[in-house]
Simulated assay, not measured.
Amino acid sequence: MSKVKYYYDSDTLSYQKIERKKGRRFGIVLLSIFGSFLAGFLLLLVYLNIPQIETPKEKALKRELQNMQLQYGLLNKKMDQIQNVLGNIEDRDNNIYRLYFEANPIPEETRKAGFGGINRYKDLEGFDNSKLILETTKRMDVLTKQLVVQSKSLDEIADLAKEKEDLLAAIPAIQPVKNENLTRIASGYGWRTDPFTKVRKFHYGMDFTSPRGTPVYATGDGRVTRADNHSTGYGNHIRIDHGYGYTSLYAHLYKYNIRRGQKVKRGDVIGFVGSTGRSEAPHLHYEVYKDDEHINPINFYYGNLSPEEFDEVLRKSQQENQSLD
């Protein structure tokens, strides 16, 4: 129950009851509400304009954002390092590896090509750190593509190296009879006197004089295509297909140490010196073919002769004398 208030009226010399006006009461209430709203608005402005005042959630998000920016910075530094290493590999790939194996270098525009077509990064746009995220993502994509290109290039180089290794192993590159087993080099490649007709004719191989039974070695990796005496004049002979267009022939053998169809390695003993067929004395007649054309075997002894030994063999092979077959 509200208290009744009075005031003293000096005119009537009596106390009069104070009557409250309804309009004034409403004004006071309205003023109180407006004052509260204004005070709240002013407090909000103060809160929004004082950066030091942060809620725990805002502080956590701010720390998370700073950590993200730090991680992206570290990621870009790592990509810089990877880019430098990859650049060195690309340089060696183009200027050493591919040059050595006679392969065309990979163009720079192929290595560093971007991605065309639709916008791959649309979902990353419109955020406060979109630029940082976009640039990092683009760098990562380009770097990944460069790594894929380089990986395929190194696979190609590995295949070329394997092919080169196989080629080097296949080429007839050693002397078929060891120097210590030689009596002499009776005849080389070129015009020589036939021992039977005494007429000059072209001698398509080299004759190595050795005692009967001296080991004969395969001069390169390959597969034996013939080991018989069904070719006129050669007697017991062996033919080896080395691949890459190379074939070697070993004639006038005493006996075989291999069979037709067998795979052999350079240095394997394939037979023994004899004097079968059209032969005047025990010796090995040796021929080399490239793409079915005779070539001088003297050019293929770099595999087991020193420069001095090669010069001596070359000198003897160039002497125009009588051959032994």
Rank of each mutant, 00 (worst) to 15 (best):
K3E: 15
K5D: 09
Y7K: 10
Y8Q: 04
K17T: 01
R20M: 05
K22D: 10
G23V: 09
I28T: 08
S32G: 06
I33W: 04
F41V: 04
L43R: 01
L45R: 09
V46M: 08
I53C: 03
T55V: 00
A60S: 13
L61D: 12
E64K: 14
E64D: 14
L65E: 12
N76M: 04
M79K: 04
D80H: 02
Q83P: 03
D93M: 06
F101V: 03
E102F: 04
P107Y: 09
E109C: 03
G114A: 07
G116D: 12
G116E: 07
G117T: 10
G117Y: 11
I118E: 15
N119K: 14
N119Q: 13
L124I: 02
G126C: 09
F127V: 08
N129P: 00
K131F: 09
E135Q: 14
M140H: 11
L143H: 08
L143E: 11
T144S: 14
S151C: 00
I157G: 00
D159Y: 07
L160W: 05
K162Q: 14
K164C: 01
A170H: 07
A173Q: 12
A173H: 14
Q175Y: 01
E180V: 05
N181I: 00
N181W: 03
L182I: 00
T183A: 01
A186G: 14
G188F: 00
K198G: 08
V199D: 12
K201H: 08
M206E: 14
T209F: 11
V216N: 07
V216T: 06
V216F: 10
T219F: 07
T219W: 10
D221L: 00
V224I: 14
V224W: 02
A227E: 09
A227M: 03
N229R: 02
H230A: 07
G233W: 08
Y234A: 02
G235R: 01
N236I: 00
R239M: 12
R239K: 14
I240L: 01
Y244C: 08
L249P: 03
A251K: 12
L253I: 03
Y254F: 08
Y256F: 15
Y256K: 01
G261L: 13
G261N: 13
Q262I: 06
D268P: 07
D268S: 13
V269H: 05
G271H: 10
V273I: 11
A281L: 07
Y286W: 06
Y289F: 15
Y289M: 13
D291H: 15
E293G: 11
N296P: 05
P297N: 08
I298M: 15
N299Y: 12
Y302T: 07
N304E: 05
N304A: 12
L305A: 11
V313R: 07
K316C: 05
S317H: 12
Q319A: 11
Q322V: 06
